[in-house]
């Protein structure tokens, strides 16, 4: 930072000449101070204080007891179902989103379809939270449109076959409503980078479609797809509003457990709450670090 200051001083002096040259020390860094102060106070410090709390006793001494305390059946089950829902919705979201994006980029469909679907994806990926839960209750709830349609038309009561909107699969299907559009939005640029010339070159050299995908398409796209998957995973892992409105507290996922803990200390140990939050940061943090690393790799092909 000091080096940046000196460089800045030099260019500043050179540019503005003697008129402003009288300022011996540059206060240019003050321009960034509000941002860094704000980020420190309302983003970094609150997070650090939780991480610190996860390794402290209520009296403030260092301990691993809170982390060990996470390994109770209730909390393990919460992490487990959270990770399962996130894996399923991210995996299916990435898979289905990829095919939709591929269809609109390379499928030879009418050109007007692409902006339409991309715009809709922008809307749908932001249509999360409580209204989304309401929409799915009206669709796949016990008296939802699709549920009743299947019952009246085909005499198939999906609830009798074990389907329940307030369950793992119900939550996953609901999450897909914002996961698939998010995948479409973030994978489309990568698919644009898949140049037609590569396919042409491969086929001139006699490669079959399978060989093209095996040796060109998949290796080029793999980091992007995996990166998107990780972003989608973190996206659903931290989500709470949809699940809360959909299931109340009947589905025990980590954000809902944490919400209940903040509201009324249901774990009877505030520092265990910090450990719970620390676990969430650790998981979303790891998947995002992997994402950044993969993105750096993927970008080599997007220039």
């Amino acid at each position: 930072m000091a080096a940046a200051h000196e460089a800045d001083l030099a260019t500043d002096g050179a540019r503005t000449g003697p008129v402003r040259g009288r300022a011996p020390r540059s206060f240019a860094w003050l321009g960034t101070a509000p941002f860094f102060l704000f980020a420190a106070l309302f983003l970094i410090l609150p997070t650090l204080t939780l991480i610190a709390g996860a390794f402290q006793t209520p009296a403030g001494d260092f301990t691993f007891q809170n982390i060990i305390g996470l390994f109770t059946p209730q909390i393990i089950a919460a992490y487990r179902i959270s990770i399962e829902v996130s894996l399923a919705s991210a995996g299916l979201g990435a898979f289905l989103g990829f095919f939709i994006a591929y269809a609109i980029v390379h499928g030879g469909l009418p050109g007007s379809l692409r902006p339409l679907i991309v715009t809709f994806s922008g809307v749908a990926s932001n249509f999360a939270g409580i209204p989304l839960a309401f929409a799915f209750i009206a669709t796949l709830g016990r008296i939802g449109l699709v549920t009743l349609f299947l019952k009246d038309t085909f005499d198939v009561n999906i609830y009798r076959y074990g389907f329940n909107l307030l369950s793992f699969w119900g939550l996953t299907i609901t999450y897909l409503y914002f996961q698939i559009p998010l995948m479409i939005l973030i994978i489309t640029p990568a698919l644009d980078g898949l140049k037609k010339e590569w396919r042409e070159a491969a086929s001139i050299l006699g490669a079959s479609t399978w060989q093209y995908w095996r040796h060109v398409g998949i290796p080029v796209l793999a980091p992007s797809i995996l990166g998107c998957f990780l972003l989608l995973f973190a996206n659903s892992f931290g989500a709470i509003a949809t699940a809360y409105a959909l299931t109340g507290s009947s589905l025990n996922i980590v954000p809902i457990l944490l919400y209940a803990q903040i509201r009324g200390d249901v774990l009877y140990n505030p520092n265990l709450g910090y450990a719970l939050a620390f676990g969430m940061i650790a998981i979303t943090g790891c998947s995002n670090i992997l994402y950044l690393w993969l993105r750096a790799r993927a970008e080599r092909w997007q220039r």
Partner: peptide
């Protein structure tokens, strides 16, 4: 030179779930 750092900080809210953020506010 600070741009990558600023960019990284602005992306952090995608890493830290909102519920964790507000929990931190309540503690701090």
């Amino acid at each position: 030179k600070l741009r990558p750092l600023v960019e990284f900080i602005t992306l952090l809210p995608l890493v830290i779930p909102p519920i964790v953020l507000v929990f931190g506010y309540l503690r701090l």
